[in-house]
Amino acid sequence: MDATQSGAQDVGKRHHILTRIWHWLNAIFATILLMSGLMIFNAHPQLYWGEFGARGDYAWLQIDDTRTTGFVRIGSARVETTGVLGLSLDSKDKVRRVAFPGWATIPTHYSLAAARRWHFAFAWLFALGLTAFMLGSLVNGHIRKGLHVRRAEWSVANIWKDIKNHTQLRFDQAHGTYNILQKLTYIGLIFVVLPTMILTGITMSPAMNAAWPWLLDLFGGRQSARSLHFIAATMLALFVVVHLLMVLLSGPIKGVRSMITGRHAATSEPGQVGERP
């Protein structure tokens, strides 16, 4: 009877130190960027397409209030969000007419100047961290070993199997590798969502427009870049929510420990699929 059949623990290397450092720094940077970004959005809680934006009539997304109720409008669809978005109460039960409430923003009180300072400072740290991680991952083989999608993984049967495992909260961790759904998610996040956030953020800077005017053409104007920046940030926030949910469902202690120590201990039982965030 081998170790797997007997239910013995299989301890192996899980995360490279570069990945672990980038993960925890990103947790800090992304939180500050999101909260300061929401305060910046509060200054003009409407999004447009194209080069210019002015009135709410032309906005594809609007978070506002009618003095008595808060609402979110996307296109022609409108939902009342009083108490959450558009109009809410602060800690002293005072009505606040802002898109996002103070507990979700940095700073908690309205200050566009302070929010911009927080956002710009950590945006550069975030961008430099992503660049260092991508270059380091090419050198240490993390991308090739961890995120490379093999030809056999593209089969419909394999993808459907992973979908069923996730819906049944069964996460394969036998060999410390990512499954096809996780690989596609991380590839999309690292190589599409995060670069889009960085480039659209740069596009909204007048100084960078002067240096790299082609960015405005690439994204279809400053307002389009702002919309894409907001959409990419929303996708990142949704990823974080799902990621934390998966960690909780698959064993938070083991998940956090492996991201701190870089080692992973899994117990495999006959006929069972192991847990892994």
Results as ranks from 00 to 15, higher is better:
A59E: 04
V241Y: 07
N42L: 05
R14H: 09
H15C: 02
G129K: 07
K161E: 13
M204G: 05
G56Q: 09
L47S: 03
G12K: 11
H119F: 13
G102V: 09
F41E: 00
W49T: 04
H229A: 03
T31D: 06
M235H: 00
D90A: 05
E80W: 04
I106P: 01
L61G: 09
Q62G: 00
I74L: 15
W22S: 15
I187F: 03
L34I: 12
V139M: 06
G221C: 06
L128G: 03
I21S: 04
P45G: 05
A114I: 05
Y48W: 15
N179Y: 07
V79F: 14
P277N: 11
L236N: 01
Q62C: 06
L135V: 15
R116T: 10
N179T: 03
Q223I: 00
P206T: 12
T31C: 13
I187M: 12
M39V: 01
R116F: 06
V256E: 01
T177Q: 14
A104G: 02
V79Q: 10
I159Q: 04
L215Y: 01
N42G: 03
A225I: 09
H119N: 10
L125H: 01
G220T: 07
L33W: 01
G12N: 03
I202W: 15
L244K: 01
A113Q: 12
V156Y: 12
K161L: 08
M246D: 02
T108K: 14
R14M: 06
R96L: 11
G220P: 04
P252E: 10
S137M: 08
T82D: 09
T19Q: 11
T68K: 11
T234G: 15
R263F: 15
S250P: 00
F219M: 09
A30W: 10
T177D: 12
A30L: 13
T4M: 14
T131Y: 09
F239G: 02
D64H: 15
S268M: 11
L128F: 12
N158E: 12
V95W: 05
M204K: 09
I260A: 10
G176D: 06
W60R: 03
M259V: 05
N26P: 00
I32G: 00
G83W: 08
T66K: 05
A115S: 11
S111P: 02
F171I: 04
S91I: 03
A237H: 00
M208Q: 07
F230K: 05
L169P: 00
S205F: 08
F122K: 03
R263E: 14
F100M: 11
A157W: 07
A59R: 08
L47C: 03
D64Q: 09
H166L: 12
